[in-house]
Write a protein that binds this DNA or RNA. Structure first.
Lengths: 192, 192
DNA sequence: ACATAAACGGATCAATGTTCCGTTTATGTC
DNA sequence: GACATAAACGGAACATTGATCCGTTTATGT
């Protein structure tokens, strides 16, 4: 079923709203009022609600957009870095992404139907991205083979669950350890 | 500094409010409106806000009360069951407690200052309770020694993070496995 | 240039968190 | 038991926010 063409001003406003929402969530938290987002985007409330029927739909859209951006960065890194380096850089990027999702995570587990498809979206975007990086790095002999992307994604997610203020340093240190664990027992091509 | 005596009707209403809040959170979710809680408790809105300056203070109070109840059950179980059995029963009770805190967990991670002392309250109540049960069970040779209560509490918490509808069954099964892991390599007193 | 439909935006409404203050009641003293 | 007093009560009112509605504006196709 062909999608009805969307006007240019509608596309422009949608982008503005998503950018504004991202910035407002970062500065005022994921519970910041829609009026603040509208003011920052320079649009009316009706403009936001015409495109996002409920506030949670807007939150979910921001999340999906950031998943898209982070997943796309895997391809970009693979094109400009050696396999092992690309993998490490992306895992650090992903860890940073998870860190900024703390407040969003609370909303995600609120039971709101708008969020129920997000875990799947998350997985269907990140898993292929990381699998590609892992395969390339393993083929280059820079990491061991046989590590499932999903397991790594969950591991970083779990390691990011920290209850003290030293959380970020702890998480970064543990992710470094994880990466070194990947390197250990890598099989160099010439050794095969 | 001596605490000013609180009137009997004030104490009665506070209990009524906390009981009502617990029931309303269970039936309507942790975001249920204060008006619903007031109606169920049979008090006015001013009565709630006089004792709990903000809604999040009420949520935190409900949580502390349930932590108190669950922790106290450890002592009660120890008095009426053999050590190993008391340990198992309490771990299951604790698992059930964690399960009912899903919605509350979202609120807890919202960044609200009312909740920032709760992890400490949680830990300072549950850790001694579980340590006592573990020590008694180890002394009876029913479980291995050397397992930190805090590690177990966190493990059950982490195992309770499930993203599908089979979560409860999965969690129960994994907690059973954990308990069996405790039993394995228990040192019977006569074998020492 | 014009017709038309998509998009806009902000006033308005409903719901909820929170405050305020006149009224009620528990408690201590005589 | 009467009385004074202060603690507690409760619901109307206020502020804020999610969401809706409809007159106006603007993008787009002919």
């Amino acid at each position: 079923m062909s999608e009805k063409r969307v006007r240019a001003d509608a596309r422009r406003n949608e982008d503005a709203v998503l950018e504004a929402a991202k910035a407002v969530f970062a500065s005022s938290g994921v519970d910041a009022p829609v009026r603040e987002i509208a003011a920052k985007a320079g649009v009316g409330l009706g403009t936001i609600y015409r495109r996002f029927p409920e506030r949670s739909d807007l939150v979910a859209a921001v999340f999906r957009r950031e998943v898209d951006t982070c997943a796309a960065e895997a391809t970009a890194l693979a094109e400009s870095h050696p396999p092992g380096e690309a993998l490490v850089l992306w895992l650090k990027r992903y860890t940073a992404f998870i860190a900024t999702k703390r407040g969003l995570a609370a909303a995600l587990h609120s039971g709101d139907p708008a969020f129920e498809k997000l875990p799947g979206y998350f997985r269907s975007n990140f898993e292929p991205a990381l699998t590609a990086l892992l395969d390339a790095a393993a083929a280059a002999g820079e990491v061991r083979a046989g590590v499932a992307a999903y397991d790594l994604l969950r591991a970083v997610g779990n390691l990011s669950i920290a209850s003290d203020e030293d959380g970020p340093a702890y998480t970064a240190g543990m992710v470094d350890l994880l990466i070194d664990g990947l390197r250990f027992r890598a099989v160099r091509p010439a050794e095969k």
